[in-house]
Design a protein around this nucleic acid. Sequence first.
DNA 1: ATAGGCGATGTAAACCTTTACATAGATCAA
DNA 2: TTGATCTATGTAAAGGTTTACATCGCCTAT
Lengths: 344, 344
Amino acid sequence: MSETADRPATIEDVAKLAGVSIATVSRALRSPEKVAESTRKKVTAAIARTGYTANAMAQNLRMQRSQMVLVLASSIADPNFAGILTGLEKAANDRGYGVLIGNTEGTTGLEQNYLRFLSTGMADGLVLLTGHIPVAGEPQAPLTTLPPIVATERPVANAEICYVGVDDVAASKMATEYLISLGHRKITYISGGPADIRSDLRHSGYRRGLMESPELLRDWRVEGEGTSESGRAAVERLFIKDDLPTAFFCFNDNTAIGVISALQLRGYRVPEDFSVLGFDDIPFANNFTPGLTTIRQPRHHIGEKAMNILLDRLANRSLARETLLLHGDLIVRESCADVSRKTR
Amino acid sequence: MSETADRPATIEDVAKLAGVSIATVSRALRSPEKVAESTRKKVTAAIARTGYTANAMAQNLRMQRSQMVLVLASSIADPNFAGILTGLEKAANDRGYGVLIGNTEGTTGLEQNYLRFLSTGMADGLVLLTGHIPVAGEPQAPLTTLPPIVATERPVANAEICYVGVDDVAASKMATEYLISLGHRKITYISGGPADIRSDLRHSGYRRGLMESPELLRDWRVEGEGTSESGRAAVERLFIKDDLPTAFFCFNDNTAIGVISALQLRGYRVPEDFSVLGFDDIPFANNFTPGLTTIRQPRHHIGEKAMNILLDRLANRSLARETLLLHGDLIVRESCADVSRKTR
DNA sequence: ATAGGCGATGTAAACCTTTACATAGATCAA
DNA sequence: TTGATCTATGTAAAGGTTTACATCGCCTAT
């Protein structure tokens, strides 16, 4: 196919071969209706012969954009990350954009560093999974003017930023109501730590669920950190106090797994002795024994929506803030049981 | 800090402010030793005042590179992916490169599409986690000349391509010897499917482990697919045949988890009745009950090494093929027991 | 005193596109 | 026939860098 060239073919090579000017070649590619049928054919043929592909750097320089989006995440290893990234990536790819990833590990130093992609024009927009607006710092340019941003996974506190995520409140309310419907009357909420906004949202959803029958149920929050260790620890603290619920609604699946294993370690069975309900539906929830009853986050969908909103804003320069809360499904597996079957 | 400008400052703005030519500004940044101390100071001051950051597109166009690497993976959700990506990402970032990710989902269509980053010069190099060289196809430029490539996670068959990964053979041999040392004499290997080269490597490591005492042990391979479902299915087939091992060495942790849950479902206990050993040490292996004894892949390290090799090649244009096999550690948890304690 | 050398800086080309504007030819109406 | 209109194409500028080469002082050695 391509000419025997060490250096990739340029638009000029194509023009020469087709016997036209480079402007015509460019037009033949970008706005074919502006060039005569016959000429278009000649150009197409020349492109095929030379194996020409437009140089993205030159295009982007000229057009003042990069067709690239920066995704900033505090932990790539987070079980939710892969699913969201898949969605982000698909939507971006469908619209000719590329996804650049930046793993901040929660440090502002790395975060700073990734902002270079923004300040140098290497990325046109930003997807935030960190939960906070990147801090402007010394070493790099101050980024006085941030590009279009959309947050996913976790909302950004105190900021007018687009957000796409699961409807934490509604989903948690649904989860709690489900536990109530199974006959549970003593339900604790194991939190995800004070720093995580989502934990508060889920807590408030839980409280709304309880309000259905306020005379019977008490708002009972136990602190966790969103890890399975913290789930275990929470259970231990409850046992020490000797005040036990019949059901646990956990901030996330990791916590739920910790809770279950702590209970099992003490010789109790789930769901026969205690019911445990998680959040996220991480890939592993189904492989765990017992299968985890949980709220499924539509991760892929979340990612897709988020990217599409970002790219829309990039295209329109529309600045309307938009918040999109997606429905989370209750996935019933084996970790919750009707309280009447409780044997303890 | 920065001038009140709608448009980002260019090198020209800096030059004007500092009273020098743009060449001098460029030199002050890229080869400071070539410019007089006094001038350098003026330039630095001007840069600070304008908030100048060099335009990456212009730089890259001029220098004929992009400082970007494309990572092609068949599944972002693979439990090994996150760890490797973290390593790739860190090494790239340390050396001023960005990581562009492409999720092929195993389809050649998407794969094709991502190659545009290569043919347009948007990426300088390629990290392959797909296990095969991308196929040259119609729609995009034929990519007659592939950029520097390095494979990780899984080697590329029949190709002279750099590879960085865990030493499957050695690690599997070690795993098998460990089972033997626990007194097991009937050990099956549950494979990862015929298409996966790594499965064969691990199988051959397993066989080498058996060779220590060939008179006692038989090479016993059962087909799986690397999923927990396939692990479950493999166990069921063995029960139907009524020919059971005392220990299972599984292609990966997912399979091992499937094997264990199938055994538990039939009322057996692990490790009391059967020992099960996995591979990968996925993040979940530690949260499973029983804790999974497995081989740990040094994912982060693998990613780092792979990226560094790629960037070295990018810098030197050295074409020497290099294969780097990293040591995998045996992580002893609870899923394997001494056969003398077997109760069945 | 003067040639030669050296250090610091400027000039301009090159990297590869896109696109506003200019031009040329054709068609058409009066 | 002539001017107007329209279509197809070419010319050249612009986008922001880097860097080879030219230039210009100044210092030093003869």
